[in-house]
Amino acid sequence: MSRRFRRLPLALLPLVLVAALSGCGSDDGSSSDSGSQALDAVSISGDFGSEPTVDWKGKMTADTIENTTITEGDGATVEDGDTVTTNIWIGNGFTQKKAFSTYDAKQPQDLTIDDQKVSPVFVDAIKGATIGSRIAVTAPADKAFGASGNTQLGIGNKDSVLIIIDLMSEPTPPLDAPKGASKPSPAWAPKLVQKDGAVTSLDFSKAPEPDGKLHSAALIQGTGAVVKKGQTITVNYLGQVYGGKKPFDESYSKGDPVSFGIGSGQVIPGWDKTLVGAKIGSRMILAIPPADGYGKAGQPSAGIKGTDTLYFVVDILGAS
Rank of each mutant, 00 (worst) to 15 (best):
S2A: 13
R3E: 12
L17Y: 07
A19G: 13
G23F: 04
D27N: 14
S31G: 15
L39N: 14
S50E: 13
S50K: 15
M60P: 08
T61L: 09
A62H: 08
A62Y: 10
T64P: 01
T68W: 04
T68A: 11
T69Y: 08
G75C: 11
V84A: 07
T85V: 15
I90M: 15
N92K: 07
F100Q: 02
D104E: 10
K106P: 02
Q109P: 00
P120F: 09
G128S: 09
G132S: 09
R134H: 10
K143G: 01
A147T: 12
A147L: 10
Q152S: 07
L153G: 00
L153S: 04
S160N: 12
I164C: 04
D166H: 04
M168Q: 00
P171I: 11
P171S: 13
K195G: 09
K195Y: 05
G197I: 05
A198V: 07
V199P: 02
G222H: 03
A225E: 15
V227I: 15
V235D: 00
Y237T: 15
L238I: 15
G244H: 06
F248Q: 10
E250Y: 06
S259L: 07
G261T: 11
I262K: 02
G265C: 11
V267M: 08
I268W: 03
P269V: 08
G270T: 12
K279N: 14
K279H: 15
G281D: 00
R283V: 05
M284A: 01
M284Y: 02
A287H: 04
G295V: 08
K296S: 10
P300S: 11
G303N: 05
I304G: 01
T309G: 02
V314L: 09
